[in-house]
Amino acid sequence: MKRLRHYFRLYFLIEAQYIKSKMQYRDDFFISSIGMFFSSLTTIAVFWVLLASIPDLAGWSFNQLVFIYAFYMLAISPFQILFDHFWQLRFHVIEGTFIKYYFRPLNMLFYYLSEMFDIKGVVQLVLGIAMFIYASIKLQVSWNLPLLLLLAATLFSASLVTISIMMIAASSAFWIFNSWPVLDLARRLREFSPYPMTIFDGFFKILFTYIIPIGFVAFYPSQFFLGSQSISTAVYLSPLIGIGTFALAYWIWLKGVNSYTGTGS
């Protein structure tokens, strides 16, 4: 417990320094927020345009799709806000500056991530909450205590799935150095997670459910709240799958950290 408090205190100390250095560029926050706002709304705009031509997308109405997308936004917010430093990992690995993280009596993953806090991710979170409330009202989801607890559990699990996928992609930097294409691929996959998984069949359904589990970022867990008639077994796995994928991702991260030999500079 004392250890946890110690980590919390350190997190805020390191983060405070980061925020102070960011305060130099105040208009950056403003412009980035606009960028975040537009990129968050693209998928909704796609759904809106598509549903002008067809009555529903694989059986899902516009409001249901908004609900799934809002769930997705909430699930990816922790990654966006707290884990943004993963995008920089390749630079630290290539330039050799990653070596400094070995020299502190701290968990390396914690220390590495604590150096960055993505303020614009808050825009995404707020937008996600707003959409979630909007869709809940439109779909008349009757929230009660068990359902809210289930929401907390599924969101936690979905966040861990996103974090794990991106963490594995970022860790590839330890072996291939330029991990950008891998991260970009992971992001591309993640961006499709709010689409109904029911559009896939056969091999791809299994791939996106069990091998690269993007279905668990939004589509499967939201089934609990949408009152759908046919709930597949995958849905019931969704509160649990996050822990398993995170354990795997952390194991890969440790492998990478232990095999890194620096750049010799």
């Binding site: 560029y25 403003f30 412009i31 980035s32 960028g35 975040m36 537009f38 990129s39 693209t42 614009k120």
Partner: peptide, 18 residues
């Protein structure tokens, strides 16, 4: 004028994309 290339560039990307 501004060092915020992420924001401007990603807004541009989204606008062109859509």
């Amino acid at each position: 004028y501004t060092e915020s290339i992420w924001g401007i560039s990603s807004t541009k990307d989204i606008i062109i994309l859509f």
